[in-house]
């Protein structure tokens, strides 16, 4: 019986390998993206996956597991076999989920191994083309005058544009008329159509519209100006002191993934972030890879911790929950 099973297993298995890092990886690695294909996170994931495949010598395949604001994918990866063949690329949502979802099935700080940070994608504040204000000061005046009649579009609860909106409302100390859309596309449609006033979204989504002159743009949300939108000041420079938010991305592995496997992945990530093609494509997205010392597990954990603390009071005072 045992011999028979051995033979059967032998037929099933084609390559020869072990679970240790010496040979890792011996088959395709799955990088789970918690959002639908085609979005900004998916794009970041695909670019990095392709570059990581080169140095790992195996294909890194993208699996889109959308649902429940990204928590479904994170929950599944947390429970996956910790062998380095299932990874997660998640954005800022990893740090807001513990507050937005009161019944979260996993703990972002406990259930993962941390490969490293990938990129900080900037966001930009835009408005419909016929919006009265000329600059951020004008926007603030408009809000002071129209108060909650000012409408703000976002791509759905937990999305980057929703988070930026929450931070913005806290900064201007005024509740806006928040309109939730089901994705960036429909939200942008209503900005272009002039049906809704403001939106703050990733430059990946806004750059085309800004350059095409179809929307008004006021500022970017990063500490420094963005290279491919040089005419835009930062929020801080334009009049909202200290306002800063970026959509940071990190790569995670299930808890218990062997240390040497994680180290190999971190190494592959660092190499990928030096890849000229990645740098160029990121630049087109209006972003750049994080410095090499940030593409480490330690940096990712530190970022995750501070971000969880940053968002908790904001979400709680806004009283918006996703469950």
């Amino acid at each position: 019986m045992r011999k028979w099973l051995l033979a059967a297993a032998g037929i099933l298995a084609l390559g020869i390998s072990g679970a240790s890092a010496q040979n890792y990886p011996t088959r395709n690695i799955t990088l789970v993206i918690p959002f639908a294909a085609g979005g900004p996170t998916d794009t970041v994931g695909r670019l990095v996956a392709e570059a990581m495949s080169k140095s790992l010598g195996q294909q890194v395949i993208i699996e889109n597991l959308a649902g429940a604001g990204g928590t479904r994918a994170a929950g599944q990866v947390a429970k996956a076999t910790p062998d380095g063949y299932t990874l997660l690329l998640h954005h800022i949502g990893m740090s807001t989920a513990p507050t937005l979802y009161r019944k979260l099935a996993y703990n972002p700080l406990n259930d993962f191994e941390y490969v490293g940070l990938v990129t900080d994608a900037p966001m930009s504040l835009i408005a419909r083309l016929n919006f009265e204000a000329k600059d951020l000061k004008g926007v603030l005046e408009y809000i002071a005058k129209n108060k909650e009649k000012t409408s703000y579009a976002n791509a759905g609860i937990g999305s980057a544009s929703h988070l930026c909106g929450m931070l913005f409302q806290a900064a201007v100390k005024q509740q806006l008329n928040t309109v939730n859309y089901n994705g960036t596309g429909p939200a942008m449609n209503d900005i272009l159509g002039g049906h809704v006033d403001l939106m703050c979204d990733q430059t990946t989504n806004t750059t085309g519209q800004i350059k095409g002159g179809k929307v008004k743009a006021f500022a970017v949300t990063t500490k420094a100006r963005v290279k491919n939108l040089p005419e835009l000041p930062t929020m801080d420079q334009a009049g909202l002191a200290g306002f800063e938010v970026a959509v940071w991305h990190g790569i995670y592995a299930p808890k218990g993934t062997p240390k040497d496997v994680v180290a190999k992945l971190t190494d592959a990530l660092q190499k990928a972030l030096k890849d000229p093609k990645v740098i160029e494509s990121f630049a087109n997205l209006g972003t750049e890879p994080v410095p090499q010392d940030q593409a480490t597990g330690a940096a990712l954990v530190a970022k995750l911790k501070t971000e969880i603390e940053k968002w908790r009071p904001l979400i709680q005072s806004a009283g918006v929950y996703a469950d």
Partner: peptide
């Protein structure tokens, strides 16, 4: 993205002494 031979079979094979090295397709 789905395993040809799943995780249950992997543990079954492992428990009867099949070396992990030959269970590449089961995960």
């Amino acid at each position: 993205p789905v395993a040809l031979c799943g995780s249950w079979l992997r543990s079954l094979f492992l428990s009867v002494g099949v070396p992990a090295t030959s269970l590449n397709l089961c995960y």
